[in-house]
């Protein structure tokens, strides 16, 4: 069953086109991720979903409610967590939660089951001002506030930006638990490693969706075998690989260079010889599985070359 259906939506701010003709759908009870760098249009898209902006063209419906006509119903039934911490910093944890519960006409008690797992972690600080919480705590509180009225859809705009890696991991576990308890979740993130935790992802760049797939599907679509290459002088290695006759792409990924060749199968021996000629030592070339990030970069390069044409 489709929960969100978006058809050909566009949105521009005066002259800047933020969202250009994108369509997607989200199934009920799905954890759906929008992955893309800053400025890809994720926040604009989320503001359209949450009825804070009106699209220039195209239609979006959430649970068959139209975002333009039925915005009142939608607002009652979604929880939105903006990218910027937007709770009252001069109210305590408990006061914030009570406030958001009451304006939705409910109480903390009524929906405590839903937030219990998250709230117990911040409960020891419930008399602390929200502004005085750490980054991870703030996100947990914001999630509680977005959940307190038992929404059918949760829209989270970059919830893990600026949060340490342990809290990020915890946060994604919470999201998965929430999805399992029946809430549809749409989340955006600039971190590629988080993409694999979603059920499906949409890879966004410059206001367009480049690909929609399951994380596994995205990876399996990677066109060529990928190799991790390293040597003792990484800086020179990159410059020389770029000049290698069979080189299609080479990117730095942590300790390694990720490399694809123009030919279907890389001739490892030839490449090793080439590098040895250039006096490289400690050369290692090994095939690896592509990550979402590899796929994203490949798609980006593909799009920019096709745009140039």
């Amino acid at each position: 069953m489709l929960f969100i259906e978006a058809h050909n939506i566009s949105k521009s701010y005066s002259k800047t086109l933020a969202i250009s003709d994108i369509s997607f759908d989200v199934k009920k009870n799905e954890l759906y991720g929008f992955i893309g760098p800053d400025g890809a249009g994720k926040t604009t898209l989320f503001r359209l979903l949450t009825t804070l902006l009106l699209p220039n063209s195209g239609t979006i419906s959430i649970n068959n409610w139209d975002v333009v006509k039925d915005y009142k119903t939608i607002r009652k039934n979604i929880g939105y967590m903006p990218g910027r911490f937007s709770l009252y910093q001069d109210l305590t944890v408990e006061e914030n939660l009570t406030f958001f519960a009451t304006i939705f006409g409910t109480t903390i008690k009524e929906n405590y089951d839903l937030i219990r797992d998250i709230y117990v972690q911040i409960e020891p600080f419930k008399t602390r001002m929200a502004g005085k919480l750490s980054g991870g705590m703030k996100q947990k509180l914001a999630l509680c506030c977005a959940l307190i009225h038992k929404p059918e859809l949760l829209v989270l705009d970059e919830p893990t930006t600026g949060v340490d890696s342990v809290s990020r991991k915890e946060f994604w576990e919470m999201l998965q638990n929430l999805r399992n308890s029946g809430i549809t979740i749409v989340v955006s993130t600039p971190y590629m490693d988080e993409a694999s935790l979603c059920d499906r992802v949409a890879l966004m760049q410059n206001g367009k969706i480049m690909q929609i797939n399951t994380p596994q599907g995205v990876i399996s679509k990677f066109p060529k075998p990928l190799y991790a290459i390293r040597s003792d002088d990484m800086y020179l290695l990159k410059n020389e690989l770029v000049n290698y006759i069979d080189c299609e792409s080479v990117h730095i990924f942590g300790q390694n260079l990720h490399y694809t060749s123009k030919s279907k199968v890389l001739n490892v021996n030839n490449l090793t010889l080439f590098l040895e000629e250039k006096n490289h030592t400690g050369i290692s070339i090994s095939p690896i599985n592509p990550s979402i990030e590899d796929c994203f970069i490949a798609l980006m390069t593909e799009n920019s070359t096709s745009d140039a044409k």
């Binding site: 949450t50 009825t51 804070l52 009142k72 607002r75 009652k76 979604i78 939105y80 903006p82 910027r84 911490f85 937007s86 709770l87 009252y88 910093q89 958001f100 304006i103 939705f104 006409g105 506030c145």
Partner: peptide, 13 residues
């Protein structure tokens, strides 16, 4: 300025 209005705007207030 603080962005709290964003959160208020998505409520049924």
């Amino acid at each position: 300025e603080l962005g709290t209005i964003e959160q208020i705007n998505v409520t049924p207030i």
